[in-house]
């Protein structure tokens, strides 16, 4: 029944996954994010783009409660983040951790299950099985017992992705997952992100490479301390918004 499925699709896409109202974040009195209002619909694969220092990572960290905003509120499916932790998975920047830490790829992926375990309880067979499946999905199963410093940059990024997958969340936040990875890994990662979207998940990615935005994403938010624009890539990814975000006469050749 095309009508019904169409209706269902419509209802789905009308759900707001993340709602941000009047969010302001400052480091030492200097606003990094200023009065951000943003609605992210459920089921989109969204890029956050903007120049260095635009507050892209800060936005994600404030949504996840890692940074405390001075003003504003964030809700995930209508409730504060504290109540919705299990719905959300986070992939931090690769450089944010010490890869010489004495642990293995499998162990890092297992950390993704800690949230559902809560305090004190330890991961068991069930968690291990989930972690192995996630490793399989990102093609890293053969490396499960590798010490993490002995993995290449691309492999480390895949481990981070597997750690997010294992959380089995509804919304995925990723901070520059394509930073310093080779072309093969980039394709592998974007395919997994597209699969997530197909499964009805919402994926939000801090992204740097403007050339690939139309190819990879269906939704985009332009950010430079203030929100410049947000919406479907096909409607708003244009030179006008790029110029507003990046400064004078920024042009990018968008492939048709």
């Amino acid at each position: 029944m095309p009508f019904l499925s169409g209706l269902k699709q419509n209802i789905m896409s009308n759900n707001i996954a993340v709602q941000i109202d009047d969010l302001t974040v400052a480091y030492n009195y200097k606003p990094v994010l200023w009065d951000i209002d943003l609605e992210i619909p459920e089921g989109v694969l969204m890029a956050i783009v903007g120049p260095n220092g635009a507050g892209k990572s800060t936005l994600i960290k404030s949504i996840l409660g890692i940074l405390k905003p001075i003003a504003g509120s964030v809700s995930i499916y209508g409730k504060p983040y504290d109540k919705q932790r299990s719905q959300v998975a986070y992939v931090p920047q690769k450089g944010s951790v010490d890869w010489d830490f004495p642990t293995t790829a499998l162990d890092v992926v297992m950390m993704g299950t800690y949230g559902s375990l809560g305090w004190i309880k330890r991961p068991g067979q069930k968690e291990k099985k989930a972690a192995l499946e996630a490793l399989e999905k990102v093609g890293m199963l053969p490396f499960k017992n590798r010490q993490i410093s002995q993995l290449s940059g691309g492999q480390q990024q895949r481990i981070f992705l597997a750690r997010a997958l294992v959380q089995n969340a509804s919304i995925y936040f990723m901070d520059e997952p394509f930073q310093g990875v080779d072309a093969t890994t980039e394709i592998a990662i974007i395919n997994i992100l597209k699969e997530l979207r197909k499964a009805g998940k919402t994926v939000i990615v801090v992204h740097h490479d403007l050339q690939t935005v139309p190819e990879y994403f269906d939704w985009v938010t332009f950010l430079n301390v203030k929100k410049i624009a947000t919406g479907p890539v096909k409607d708003i990814f244009n030179d006008d918004n790029l110029t507003k975000t990046y400064g004078i006469n920024y042009k990018v050749s968008i492939q048709e």
Binding site: G65, I66, P92, T103, M111, Y114, W119, R122
Partner: peptide, 21 residues
């Protein structure tokens, strides 16, 4: 009791915070 919490917050404090530890 807190081995898991110590490990995750030492390795990746950001993730630990986002998971509620």
């Amino acid at each position: 009791a807190f081995f898991k919490e110590l490990k995750i917050s030492t390795f990746d404090a950001g993730l630990a915070a986002s998971l509620g530890f």
